[in-house]
Amino acid sequence: MSLRLNLALLILPAALLLVMPGYADDNGPVIPPATYGDQCVADTDIMRKEHMSLLNHQRDETVIEGIRGEPFSLVSCVNCHAQNDNGGQPIRIDAKGQFCESCHTYAAVKIDCFTCHAALPEENAVIGSLQNNLPVASTYSNKQLLVMQSHKVAHKASHDYQRK
């Protein structure tokens, strides 16, 4: 036991030292702005923290129950956030410096979406999906938070259910 404890005491500070340089002069990642629209489907704070659980919940609803055209879909993310190059051609959202990649590289989290999912927007789909999906009210943050939390609960519930 004591050997294990010693090892842990040795390894923890070493690990800290390893990650420390990442915090030096940290101004955060440079995230390009959305190409379309001026409001996301939820507040930025919520999206930053919870986009994966929102996406996962939406994913299960779409794949298993066939619910489509909902705000938290990966296709909608790409539609608004993929940028265009100088020639007006869309750039892959997971390309270097682009919306997903910039933050994920900063946070050192591997993206597992775009080996299967399209990283380029749908053709001529952006405007339509924006109008359908954007929240209407402006005082959203509280309600949105509730929605988001219930999504998390729902996600867990649906997972528990599937497991049964």
Binding site: E61, I67, K143, S150, V153, A154, A157
Partner: peptide, 26 residues
């Protein structure tokens, strides 16, 4: 079950929003 959990949270407004969504297109 999903609604039960929502009820526990007391988030009535949110449950309405989501209920409509779920019932609409599944």
């Amino acid at each position: 079950r999903f609604l039960q959990k929502l009820g526990l949270m007391g988030a009535v407004a949110a449950s309405y929003t989501l209920l409509e969504v779920q019932a609409k297109t599944a």
